[in-house]
Design a protein around this nucleic acid. Sequence first.
RNA 1: GUCUCCUUCGUCUAGGGGUCUAGGACACCGCCCUUUCACGGCGGCAACACGGGUUCAAAUCCCGUAGGAGAUGCCA
Length: 463
Amino acid sequence: MSVKVRFAPSPTGVLHIGSVRTALFNWLFARHNNGKFLLRIEDTDKLRSTKENINSIFEILEWLNINWDEEPVIQSSRLERHKELALELVERGKAYFCYCTPEELASKKELSIKEGRSYKYDRKCRDFKAKRSNIPAAIRLKSEIPGSTIVHDIVQGRVEIENSQLDDLVLLRSDGTPTYMLSVVADDHDMGITHVIRGDDHLTNTFRQIQIYKAFGWDIPQFAHIPLIYGPDGLKLSKRHGASSAQDYRQLGYLPEAISNYLLRLGWSHGDDEIISKSDAIKWFDLNSVGKSPARFDIAKLQNLNAHYIRERSNESLLELIKEFSCKSISEDSKNRILKGMNSLKERARTLKELAQAAEIYISEPLEFEESCKKYASPYHLDLLKEIVEIVENYQQIDEQTLCDRVKVLAKEKNTKLVEIAQSIRGALCGKLVSPSVFEIMEILGKTETIKRLQRYIATFAK
RNA sequence: GUCUCCUUCGUCUAGGGGUCUAGGACACCGCCCUUUCACGGCGGCAACACGGGUUCAAAUCCCGUAGGAGAUGCCA
Protein backbone atom coordinates (compact mmCIF):
# COMPACT_ATOMS: atom_id res chain seq x y z
CA MET A 1 0.00 0.00 0.00
CA SER A 2 1.42 3.35 -0.94
CA VAL A 3 1.88 6.08 1.60
CA LYS A 4 -0.63 8.90 1.81
CA VAL A 5 -0.25 11.70 4.31
CA ARG A 6 -1.88 15.03 4.87
CA PHE A 7 -1.22 18.40 6.40
CA ALA A 8 -4.36 19.78 7.96
CA PRO A 9 -4.01 23.34 9.23
CA SER A 10 -6.93 25.35 10.49
CA PRO A 11 -7.02 28.81 8.94
CA THR A 12 -7.73 30.59 12.19
CA GLY A 13 -4.51 32.56 12.07
CA VAL A 14 -1.14 32.76 10.39
CA LEU A 15 0.84 29.54 9.98
CA HIS A 16 2.83 28.83 13.11
CA ILE A 17 6.44 27.82 12.58
CA GLY A 18 5.67 24.56 14.39
CA SER A 19 2.93 23.82 11.88
CA VAL A 20 5.39 24.46 9.12
CA ARG A 21 7.60 21.78 10.58
CA THR A 22 4.67 19.39 10.71
CA ALA A 23 3.98 20.14 7.06
CA LEU A 24 7.64 19.63 6.21
CA PHE A 25 7.83 16.28 7.98
CA ASN A 26 4.69 15.08 6.23
CA TRP A 27 5.99 16.25 2.89
CA LEU A 28 9.40 14.69 3.40
CA PHE A 29 7.83 11.43 4.51
CA ALA A 30 5.62 11.33 1.43
CA ARG A 31 8.43 12.16 -0.97
CA HIS A 32 10.80 9.71 0.68
CA ASN A 33 8.27 6.93 0.28
CA ASN A 34 7.09 7.98 -3.13
CA GLY A 35 3.69 8.59 -1.65
CA LYS A 36 1.16 11.37 -1.75
CA PHE A 37 1.09 14.56 0.26
CA LEU A 38 -2.38 16.06 0.60
CA LEU A 39 -3.69 19.28 2.03
CA ARG A 40 -6.84 19.70 4.05
CA ILE A 41 -8.09 23.03 5.30
CA GLU A 42 -9.88 22.57 8.61
CA ASP A 43 -12.14 25.56 8.43
CA THR A 44 -15.04 24.30 10.52
CA ASP A 45 -14.52 27.08 13.03
CA LYS A 46 -16.47 29.55 10.94
CA LEU A 47 -15.94 32.44 13.29
CA ARG A 48 -12.17 32.41 13.19
CA SER A 49 -11.46 30.98 9.74
CA THR A 50 -10.82 33.49 7.00
CA LYS A 51 -10.16 33.46 3.29
CA GLU A 52 -6.99 35.48 3.84
CA ASN A 53 -5.62 32.90 6.23
CA ILE A 54 -6.32 30.12 3.75
CA ASN A 55 -4.51 32.01 1.03
CA SER A 56 -1.55 32.73 3.25
CA ILE A 57 -1.25 29.02 4.02
CA PHE A 58 -1.04 28.21 0.31
CA GLU A 59 1.35 31.06 -0.25
CA ILE A 60 3.76 30.10 2.50
CA LEU A 61 3.79 26.42 1.52
CA GLU A 62 4.55 27.39 -2.06
CA TRP A 63 7.26 29.70 -0.84
CA LEU A 64 8.80 26.81 1.08
CA ASN A 65 8.49 24.57 -1.95
CA ILE A 66 6.20 22.19 -0.13
CA ASN A 67 3.96 21.13 -2.96
CA TRP A 68 0.79 19.11 -2.58
CA ASP A 69 -0.55 16.42 -4.81
CA GLU A 70 -4.28 16.79 -5.14
CA GLU A 71 -6.85 19.51 -4.92
CA PRO A 72 -6.94 20.59 -1.25
CA VAL A 73 -9.91 19.28 0.71
CA ILE A 74 -11.96 22.00 2.32
CA GLN A 75 -13.39 20.47 5.44
CA SER A 76 -16.47 22.66 5.61
CA SER A 77 -17.62 21.25 2.30
CA ARG A 78 -17.95 17.84 3.88
CA LEU A 79 -20.44 18.84 6.54
CA GLU A 80 -23.28 16.70 5.21
CA ARG A 81 -21.10 13.63 5.07
CA HIS A 82 -20.06 14.15 8.67
CA LYS A 83 -23.65 14.56 9.76
CA GLU A 84 -24.69 11.35 8.01
CA LEU A 85 -21.84 9.50 9.62
CA ALA A 86 -22.85 10.62 13.11
CA LEU A 87 -26.44 9.56 12.51
CA GLU A 88 -25.26 6.25 11.14
CA LEU A 89 -23.41 5.58 14.35
CA VAL A 90 -26.55 6.32 16.38
CA GLU A 91 -28.50 3.87 14.25
CA ARG A 92 -25.94 1.22 14.86
CA GLY A 93 -26.02 1.82 18.58
CA LYS A 94 -22.48 3.16 18.73
CA ALA A 95 -23.55 6.70 19.54
CA TYR A 96 -26.47 8.43 21.18
CA PHE A 97 -28.37 11.67 21.41
CA CYS A 98 -27.45 13.81 24.37
CA TYR A 99 -29.97 16.34 25.62
CA CYS A 100 -27.84 17.91 28.29
CA THR A 101 -27.50 21.65 27.79
CA PRO A 102 -24.10 23.34 27.79
CA GLU A 103 -25.17 25.25 30.90
CA GLU A 104 -26.07 22.07 32.70
CA LEU A 105 -22.70 20.54 31.85
CA ALA A 106 -20.81 23.66 32.80
CA SER A 107 -22.31 23.71 36.27
CA LYS A 108 -21.56 20.02 36.77
CA LYS A 109 -18.00 20.64 35.75
CA GLU A 110 -17.70 23.60 38.08
CA LEU A 111 -19.00 21.52 40.94
CA SER A 112 -16.57 18.67 40.44
CA ILE A 113 -13.65 21.08 40.22
CA LYS A 114 -14.80 22.72 43.44
CA GLU A 115 -14.92 19.32 45.10
CA GLY A 116 -11.49 18.47 43.77
CA ARG A 117 -12.68 15.66 41.54
CA SER A 118 -11.60 15.32 37.93
CA TYR A 119 -14.46 16.10 35.63
CA LYS A 120 -15.92 13.70 33.13
CA TYR A 121 -19.30 13.70 31.44
CA ASP A 122 -21.59 11.52 33.54
CA ARG A 123 -23.14 9.70 30.55
CA LYS A 124 -26.57 10.71 31.70
CA CYS A 125 -28.16 10.32 28.24
CA ARG A 126 -26.25 7.21 27.19
CA ASP A 127 -29.08 4.77 27.67
CA PHE A 128 -32.09 6.71 26.43
CA LYS A 129 -33.76 4.54 23.87
CA ALA A 130 -35.48 6.85 21.41
CA LYS A 131 -34.85 10.30 20.02
CA ARG A 132 -37.00 12.90 21.65
CA SER A 133 -38.12 15.06 18.79
CA ASN A 134 -37.88 18.82 18.70
CA ILE A 135 -35.33 19.05 21.44
CA PRO A 136 -31.89 20.08 20.19
CA ALA A 137 -29.52 17.24 20.85
CA ALA A 138 -25.86 16.59 20.43
CA ILE A 139 -24.57 13.19 19.38
CA ARG A 140 -22.06 11.52 21.63
CA LEU A 141 -19.91 8.49 21.01
CA LYS A 142 -20.74 5.48 23.16
CA SER A 143 -17.15 4.87 24.07
CA GLU A 144 -15.80 1.66 25.47
CA ILE A 145 -15.59 1.70 29.23
CA PRO A 146 -13.61 -1.39 30.27
CA GLY A 147 -10.09 -2.14 29.10
CA SER A 148 -7.59 0.20 27.59
CA THR A 149 -6.66 1.71 24.25
CA ILE A 150 -3.18 1.37 22.85
CA VAL A 151 -1.40 3.43 20.22
CA HIS A 152 1.74 2.16 18.53
CA ASP A 153 3.10 5.53 17.61
CA ILE A 154 6.06 5.69 15.24
CA VAL A 155 7.67 8.46 17.24
CA GLN A 156 6.26 7.98 20.73
CA GLY A 157 6.34 4.21 20.82
CA ARG A 158 3.68 2.18 22.58
CA VAL A 159 1.36 4.38 24.59
CA GLU A 160 -1.54 3.01 26.57
CA ILE A 161 -4.40 4.67 28.34
CA GLU A 162 -7.21 3.23 30.47
CA ASN A 163 -10.55 3.59 28.73
CA SER A 164 -12.01 4.79 32.00
CA GLN A 165 -10.04 8.00 31.44
CA LEU A 166 -11.97 8.74 28.29
CA ASP A 167 -15.48 10.11 28.25
CA ASP A 168 -18.23 10.04 25.68
CA LEU A 169 -17.05 12.73 23.34
CA VAL A 170 -19.37 14.84 21.25
CA LEU A 171 -19.42 13.92 17.56
CA LEU A 172 -22.13 16.29 16.40
CA ARG A 173 -23.01 19.49 18.20
CA SER A 174 -26.60 20.30 19.03
CA ASP A 175 -26.57 22.82 16.18
CA GLY A 176 -25.86 19.98 13.79
CA THR A 177 -22.21 20.80 13.09
CA PRO A 178 -19.54 18.12 13.47
CA THR A 179 -16.75 18.41 15.99
CA TYR A 180 -13.09 18.23 15.19
CA MET A 181 -12.87 14.64 16.47
CA LEU A 182 -15.47 13.38 14.02
CA SER A 183 -14.23 15.49 11.11
CA VAL A 184 -10.59 14.41 11.27
CA VAL A 185 -11.41 10.75 11.55
CA ALA A 186 -14.00 10.86 8.79
CA ASP A 187 -11.81 12.90 6.47
CA ASP A 188 -8.65 10.93 7.09
CA HIS A 189 -10.58 7.77 6.36
CA ASP A 190 -12.29 9.09 3.26
CA MET A 191 -9.03 10.53 1.94
CA GLY A 192 -7.30 7.21 2.45
CA ILE A 193 -4.66 8.58 4.79
CA THR A 194 -2.18 5.89 5.81
CA HIS A 195 0.00 7.89 8.21
CA VAL A 196 -1.12 10.70 10.46
CA ILE A 197 1.88 12.88 11.27
CA ARG A 198 1.02 15.78 13.58
CA GLY A 199 2.04 17.67 16.71
CA ASP A 200 2.17 15.70 19.93
CA ASP A 201 -0.47 17.93 21.46
CA HIS A 202 -2.80 15.56 19.61
CA LEU A 203 -1.46 12.42 21.23
CA THR A 204 -4.22 12.14 23.81
CA ASN A 205 -6.82 12.93 21.16
CA THR A 206 -5.61 9.88 19.34
CA PHE A 207 -7.15 7.53 21.89
CA ARG A 208 -10.52 9.15 21.40
CA GLN A 209 -10.13 9.03 17.65
CA ILE A 210 -9.20 5.36 17.72
CA GLN A 211 -12.48 4.67 19.44
CA ILE A 212 -14.26 6.44 16.62
CA TYR A 213 -12.39 4.37 14.04
CA LYS A 214 -13.40 1.25 15.92
CA ALA A 215 -17.04 2.29 16.13
CA PHE A 216 -17.10 2.64 12.35
CA GLY A 217 -15.10 -0.52 11.90
CA TRP A 218 -12.51 1.37 9.81
CA ASP A 219 -8.82 0.65 9.46
CA ILE A 220 -6.74 2.71 11.82
CA PRO A 221 -3.88 4.64 10.21
CA GLN A 222 -0.36 4.72 11.59
CA PHE A 223 0.34 7.62 13.89
CA ALA A 224 3.44 9.72 14.40
CA HIS A 225 3.25 12.48 16.98
CA ILE A 226 6.15 14.87 16.69
CA PRO A 227 7.16 17.14 19.56
CA LEU A 228 6.16 20.76 19.56
CA ILE A 229 8.58 23.66 19.24
CA TYR A 230 9.19 25.73 22.33
CA GLY A 231 10.49 29.23 22.85
CA PRO A 232 13.88 29.98 24.45
CA ASP A 233 12.12 29.93 27.83
CA GLY A 234 10.83 26.38 27.35
CA LEU A 235 7.23 27.43 26.84
CA LYS A 236 5.20 26.75 23.74
CA LEU A 237 6.45 29.12 21.04
CA SER A 238 3.96 31.92 20.51
CA LYS A 239 3.59 35.57 19.69
CA ARG A 240 4.95 36.39 23.11
CA HIS A 241 8.35 35.25 21.89
CA GLY A 242 8.29 37.69 19.01
CA ALA A 243 8.35 36.06 15.61
CA SER A 244 6.41 32.80 15.66
CA SER A 245 4.85 32.40 12.24
CA ALA A 246 6.46 31.48 8.95
CA GLN A 247 5.40 34.86 7.60
CA ASP A 248 7.28 36.58 10.42
CA TYR A 249 10.51 34.87 9.46
CA ARG A 250 9.99 35.56 5.81
CA GLN A 251 9.57 39.25 6.56
CA LEU A 252 12.66 39.20 8.72
CA GLY A 253 14.65 38.12 5.67
CA TYR A 254 15.06 34.40 6.08
CA LEU A 255 15.34 32.15 3.05
CA PRO A 256 12.94 29.22 2.68
CA GLU A 257 15.80 26.74 2.34
CA ALA A 258 17.31 27.99 5.60
CA ILE A 259 14.02 27.62 7.43
CA SER A 260 13.48 24.12 6.04
CA ASN A 261 16.97 23.03 6.96
CA TYR A 262 16.68 24.48 10.43
CA LEU A 263 13.25 23.00 11.10
CA LEU A 264 14.36 19.62 9.86
CA ARG A 265 17.34 19.52 12.23
CA LEU A 266 15.14 20.48 15.14
CA GLY A 267 14.34 17.11 16.58
CA TRP A 268 15.81 15.08 13.78
CA SER A 269 19.37 14.36 12.78
CA HIS A 270 21.48 12.39 10.36
CA GLY A 271 24.84 11.76 11.99
CA ASP A 272 26.93 14.91 12.00
CA ASP A 273 25.23 16.49 9.00
CA GLU A 274 24.09 20.04 9.53
CA ILE A 275 23.71 21.50 6.06
CA ILE A 276 21.18 19.28 4.37
CA SER A 277 19.90 19.84 0.87
CA LYS A 278 16.31 19.14 -0.04
CA SER A 279 17.26 16.10 -2.06
CA ASP A 280 19.36 14.65 0.76
CA ALA A 281 16.56 15.40 3.17
CA ILE A 282 14.17 13.37 1.02
CA LYS A 283 16.70 10.60 0.72
CA TRP A 284 17.46 10.44 4.42
CA PHE A 285 14.26 11.37 6.20
CA ASP A 286 12.65 8.82 8.43
CA LEU A 287 10.17 9.16 11.25
CA ASN A 288 11.94 6.64 13.44
CA SER A 289 14.78 8.98 14.21
CA VAL A 290 12.56 11.87 15.16
CA GLY A 291 13.25 12.57 18.83
CA LYS A 292 10.55 12.55 21.47
CA SER A 293 11.79 15.47 23.50
CA PRO A 294 10.67 18.99 22.71
CA ALA A 295 13.14 21.41 21.14
CA ARG A 296 13.69 25.06 21.80
CA PHE A 297 13.79 27.50 18.96
CA ASP A 298 17.25 29.03 18.58
CA ILE A 299 17.33 32.08 16.37
CA ALA A 300 21.16 32.21 16.34
CA LYS A 301 21.36 28.84 14.63
CA LEU A 302 18.73 29.84 12.10
CA GLN A 303 20.76 32.97 11.39
CA ASN A 304 23.87 30.93 10.85
CA LEU A 305 22.10 28.64 8.42
CA ASN A 306 20.52 31.59 6.67
CA ALA A 307 23.93 33.23 6.24
CA HIS A 308 25.13 30.01 4.67
CA TYR A 309 22.26 29.85 2.20
CA ILE A 310 22.61 33.53 1.33
CA ARG A 311 26.21 32.86 0.33
CA GLU A 312 25.02 29.95 -1.79
CA ARG A 313 22.52 32.03 -3.73
CA SER A 314 23.47 33.67 -6.99
CA ASN A 315 24.07 37.42 -6.96
CA GLU A 316 21.21 37.96 -9.37
CA SER A 317 18.65 36.16 -7.26
CA LEU A 318 19.85 38.02 -4.18
CA LEU A 319 19.43 41.34 -5.96
CA GLU A 320 15.90 40.32 -6.82
CA LEU A 321 15.19 39.31 -3.23
CA ILE A 322 16.48 42.41 -1.48
CA LYS A 323 14.19 44.68 -3.47
CA GLU A 324 11.34 44.10 -1.05
CA PHE A 325 13.60 44.79 1.92
CA SER A 326 15.01 48.01 0.59
CA CYS A 327 13.30 51.21 1.61
CA LYS A 328 14.66 52.94 -1.46
CA SER A 329 13.85 52.21 -5.06
CA ILE A 330 16.82 50.88 -6.92
CA SER A 331 17.88 52.49 -10.20
CA GLU A 332 19.53 50.59 -13.05
CA ASP A 333 22.87 52.14 -12.11
CA SER A 334 22.49 51.05 -8.52
CA LYS A 335 21.56 47.56 -9.61
CA ASN A 336 24.78 47.25 -11.55
CA ARG A 337 26.79 48.50 -8.63
CA ILE A 338 25.10 46.16 -6.18
CA LEU A 339 25.67 43.26 -8.51
CA LYS A 340 29.37 44.10 -8.71
CA GLY A 341 29.64 44.37 -4.96
CA MET A 342 27.40 41.43 -4.11
CA ASN A 343 30.14 38.88 -3.56
CA SER A 344 31.50 40.95 -0.72
CA LEU A 345 28.12 42.03 0.57
CA LYS A 346 26.60 38.59 0.84
CA GLU A 347 29.49 37.29 2.85
CA ARG A 348 28.57 39.68 5.63
CA ALA A 349 24.80 39.27 5.82
CA ARG A 350 22.82 36.89 7.97
CA THR A 351 19.44 37.96 6.65
CA LEU A 352 18.10 39.56 3.48
CA LYS A 353 17.22 42.54 5.58
CA GLU A 354 20.84 42.99 6.61
CA LEU A 355 21.90 42.46 3.03
CA ALA A 356 19.50 45.11 1.80
CA GLN A 357 20.79 47.55 4.40
CA ALA A 358 24.39 46.86 3.50
CA ALA A 359 23.63 47.35 -0.18
CA GLU A 360 22.36 50.85 0.43
CA ILE A 361 25.89 52.20 0.06
CA TYR A 362 25.51 51.55 -3.64
CA ILE A 363 22.10 53.17 -3.88
CA SER A 364 22.78 56.60 -2.46
CA GLU A 365 25.29 58.57 -0.46
CA PRO A 366 24.94 58.24 3.31
CA LEU A 367 22.08 60.31 4.70
CA GLU A 368 23.87 60.70 7.98
CA PHE A 369 27.12 59.67 9.58
CA GLU A 370 27.15 57.36 12.53
CA GLU A 371 28.57 58.70 15.77
CA SER A 372 31.53 56.34 15.48
CA CYS A 373 32.68 58.10 12.30
CA LYS A 374 33.69 61.19 14.26
CA LYS A 375 36.77 59.42 15.48
CA TYR A 376 37.98 59.43 11.89
CA ALA A 377 36.85 62.96 11.07
CA SER A 378 39.46 64.97 12.93
CA PRO A 379 41.32 67.73 11.05
CA TYR A 380 44.17 65.27 10.72
CA HIS A 381 41.95 62.69 9.06
CA LEU A 382 40.28 65.28 6.87
CA ASP A 383 43.71 66.30 5.60
CA LEU A 384 44.39 62.70 4.71
CA LEU A 385 41.09 62.55 2.86
CA LYS A 386 42.02 65.63 0.87
CA GLU A 387 45.08 63.74 -0.27
CA ILE A 388 42.84 60.84 -1.27
CA VAL A 389 40.67 63.17 -3.32
CA GLU A 390 43.75 64.35 -5.16
CA ILE A 391 44.92 60.84 -5.77
CA VAL A 392 41.58 59.78 -7.14
CA GLU A 393 41.36 62.85 -9.33
CA ASN A 394 44.67 61.96 -10.92
CA TYR A 395 43.39 58.66 -12.21
CA GLN A 396 41.40 58.40 -15.38
CA GLN A 397 39.68 55.32 -13.97
CA ILE A 398 40.04 53.79 -10.57
CA ASP A 399 40.44 50.17 -9.69
CA GLU A 400 40.66 48.43 -6.36
CA GLN A 401 44.18 47.10 -6.55
CA THR A 402 45.90 50.22 -7.83
CA LEU A 403 44.07 52.32 -5.31
CA CYS A 404 44.99 50.03 -2.47
CA ASP A 405 48.66 50.04 -3.45
CA ARG A 406 48.72 53.80 -3.83
CA VAL A 407 47.07 54.45 -0.45
CA LYS A 408 49.52 52.11 1.21
CA VAL A 409 52.29 54.28 -0.18
CA LEU A 410 50.51 57.36 1.14
CA ALA A 411 50.28 55.79 4.59
CA LYS A 412 54.00 55.25 4.57
CA GLU A 413 54.67 58.80 3.42
CA LYS A 414 52.48 60.19 6.16
CA ASN A 415 53.92 57.78 8.65
CA THR A 416 50.49 56.52 9.61
CA LYS A 417 48.67 53.23 9.59
CA LEU A 418 46.56 52.17 6.66
CA VAL A 419 43.63 51.63 8.99
CA GLU A 420 43.51 55.35 9.84
CA ILE A 421 43.06 56.27 6.21
CA ALA A 422 40.80 53.38 5.33
CA GLN A 423 38.41 54.07 8.17
CA SER A 424 38.12 57.73 7.25
CA ILE A 425 37.32 56.76 3.69
CA ARG A 426 34.81 54.22 4.92
CA GLY A 427 33.07 56.78 7.06
CA ALA A 428 32.92 59.22 4.18
CA LEU A 429 31.66 56.69 1.67
CA CYS A 430 29.30 54.67 3.85
CA GLY A 431 28.43 56.77 6.87
CA LYS A 432 29.49 53.88 9.08
CA LEU A 433 32.63 51.96 9.93
CA VAL A 434 31.50 48.51 8.82
CA SER A 435 31.50 47.62 5.16
CA PRO A 436 33.35 45.63 2.51
CA SER A 437 36.78 46.78 1.36
CA VAL A 438 36.84 50.55 0.85
CA PHE A 439 38.91 50.17 -2.31
CA GLU A 440 36.35 47.83 -3.78
CA ILE A 441 33.63 50.32 -2.93
CA MET A 442 35.57 53.15 -4.54
CA GLU A 443 36.04 51.16 -7.70
CA ILE A 444 32.37 50.27 -7.91
CA LEU A 445 31.24 53.80 -7.07
CA GLY A 446 33.56 55.23 -9.67
CA LYS A 447 35.70 58.32 -9.69
CA THR A 448 32.97 60.98 -9.71
CA GLU A 449 30.77 59.52 -6.97
CA THR A 450 33.78 58.74 -4.79
CA ILE A 451 35.07 62.29 -4.95
CA LYS A 452 31.61 63.66 -4.35
CA ARG A 453 31.16 61.64 -1.19
CA LEU A 454 34.65 62.38 0.10
CA GLN A 455 34.17 66.11 -0.36
CA ARG A 456 30.80 66.12 1.25
CA TYR A 457 32.31 64.39 4.28
CA ILE A 458 35.17 66.85 4.45
CA ALA A 459 32.76 69.75 4.19
CA THR A 460 30.45 68.32 6.84
CA PHE A 461 33.16 67.91 9.45
CA ALA A 462 35.35 70.88 8.54
CA LYS A 463 33.04 73.28 10.37
C1' G B 1 -6.33 17.20 40.57
C1' U B 2 -6.15 13.06 36.89
C1' C B 3 -3.89 10.97 32.56
C1' U B 4 0.18 10.94 28.92
C1' C B 5 4.98 12.26 27.38
C1' C B 6 9.92 14.30 28.10
C1' U B 7 15.08 15.12 30.69
C1' U B 8 23.25 14.42 27.32
C1' C B 9 27.38 21.15 26.89
C1' G B 10 23.64 27.81 27.15
C1' U B 11 20.85 25.72 22.43
C1' C B 12 20.10 21.64 18.50
C1' U B 13 21.91 16.86 18.79
C1' A B 14 25.38 11.86 18.29
C1' G B 15 25.45 7.74 21.27
C1' G B 16 21.14 2.26 22.52
C1' G B 17 25.89 -2.01 28.12
C1' G B 18 32.74 -2.02 27.53
C1' U B 19 35.72 1.59 21.65
C1' C B 20 33.05 7.81 26.40
C1' U B 21 39.11 10.97 28.92
C1' A B 22 31.07 11.54 25.96
C1' G B 23 31.54 13.25 19.32
C1' G B 24 29.50 17.24 15.95
C1' A B 25 26.94 22.01 15.03
C1' C B 26 25.33 26.97 16.72
C1' A B 27 26.51 30.55 20.42
C1' C B 28 30.61 32.30 23.45
C1' C B 29 36.13 33.17 24.28
C1' G B 30 41.28 33.28 22.32
C1' C B 31 44.82 33.21 18.25
C1' C B 32 45.91 33.51 12.88
C1' C B 33 44.46 36.01 8.24
C1' U B 34 43.30 41.35 7.76
C1' U B 35 42.09 48.58 5.93
C1' U B 36 36.85 47.85 9.44
C1' C B 37 33.19 44.07 9.68
C1' A B 38 32.52 39.43 7.96
C1' C B 39 34.34 34.81 5.48
C1' G B 40 38.06 31.22 6.34
C1' G B 41 41.76 28.48 9.46
C1' C B 42 43.43 26.83 14.33
C1' G B 43 42.46 26.28 19.51
C1' G B 44 39.48 26.74 24.11
C1' C B 45 35.22 26.74 27.58
C1' A B 46 31.13 23.63 28.28
C1' A B 47 26.71 18.20 29.36
C1' C B 48 24.93 12.36 30.69
C1' A B 49 18.72 16.03 36.23
C1' C B 50 18.97 13.38 41.14
C1' G B 51 18.70 8.76 44.15
C1' G B 52 18.59 3.65 44.25
C1' G B 53 19.13 -1.01 41.89
C1' U B 54 20.71 -4.99 37.80
C1' U B 55 25.73 -6.13 35.90
C1' C B 56 32.56 -7.85 36.07
C1' A B 57 31.07 -3.20 33.48
C1' A B 58 25.67 1.77 32.86
C1' A B 59 25.01 8.12 29.51
C1' U B 60 23.02 3.45 27.70
C1' C B 61 18.61 -1.52 31.20
C1' C B 62 14.94 -1.31 35.67
C1' C B 63 12.54 1.38 39.79
C1' G B 64 11.75 5.79 42.32
C1' U B 65 12.24 11.29 43.03
C1' A B 66 12.49 16.09 41.12
C1' G B 67 11.71 19.36 37.22
C1' G B 68 9.35 20.46 32.46
C1' A B 69 5.55 19.94 28.73
C1' G B 70 0.86 18.38 26.71
C1' A B 71 -4.16 16.71 27.25
C1' U B 72 -8.35 16.85 30.17
C1' G B 73 -14.18 21.74 25.37
C1' C B 74 -20.96 21.09 22.06
C1' C B 75 -11.98 24.86 19.92
C1' A B 76 -9.13 22.95 16.21
